[in-house]
């Protein structure tokens, strides 16, 4: 067992973990933040995507111990002061989700992507979400949700 300290959604969490504990299980089962999902186990589906030190990664393919001393943002950390962020709002307005299982991963991918791309083209958005599988929406409205958020971010600054 090893002692780790991970800042998740701005809060420090200390825990004793087995080195083999996957980050996704640390988040879901130790911290009980169940918005981060598991869909494929082989780093293909992106349902487990979180932002680790500013970069969106698949938390099923990172050991929790690798996150020691680092910062993790999960879907539960996106809402600020009771207000959805622009991308969450975009998903709501544009019907970017159906069963909701891939949605947290899609939101976390977008969190990083839109920070670095103020005016993404549709093609860039489609490539950006190509590590996140959605079985319900056919992606059309997810692309629109990203465009909605990008527009809002250009108009009203970051969130």
């Amino acid at each position: 067992m090893a002692a780790i300290n991970v800042k998740v959604n701005g809060v420090d969490h200390k825990a004793e973990v087995e080195p083999r504990l996957l980050l996704v299980h640390f988040i879901r089962e130790v911290l009980r933040l169940t918005g981060t999902h598991i869909g494929c186990d082989t780093s293909h589906c992106g349902a487990c995507t979180v932002v680790l030190d500013g970069r969106a990664v698949k938390s099923c393919t990172v050991f929790a111990i690798q996150a020691d001393g680092r910062e993790v943002l999960t879907v539960e950390g996106l809402e600020q002061d009771g207000k959805l962020n622009h991308l969450q709002e975009g998903f709501f307005q544009e019907h970017g989700l159906q069963c909701g299982f891939c949605t947290p991963g899609m939101l976390m991918t977008g969190y990083e992507f839109l920070k670095n791309n103020a005016e993404p083209s549709e093609d860039e958005i489609r490539h950006a979400i190509s590590g996140n599988l959605c079985r319900c929406t056919g992606y059309v409205n997810i692309v629109k949700a990203y465009q909605y958020a990008a527009q809002k971010m250009r108009e009203g600054g970051a969130q």
């Binding site: 933040l33 169940t34 918005g35 981060t36 999902h37 999960t74 879907v75 539960e76 996106l78 809402e79 959805l84 969450q88 998903f91 709501f92 989700l97 909701g100 299982f101 949605t103 947290p104 939101l107």
Partner: peptide
């Protein structure tokens, strides 16, 4: 949607 968007679904 509001619960899913916040990671508050219950699967």
């Amino acid at each position: 949607d509001p619960r899913f968007l916040r990671g508050q679904g219950n699967y």
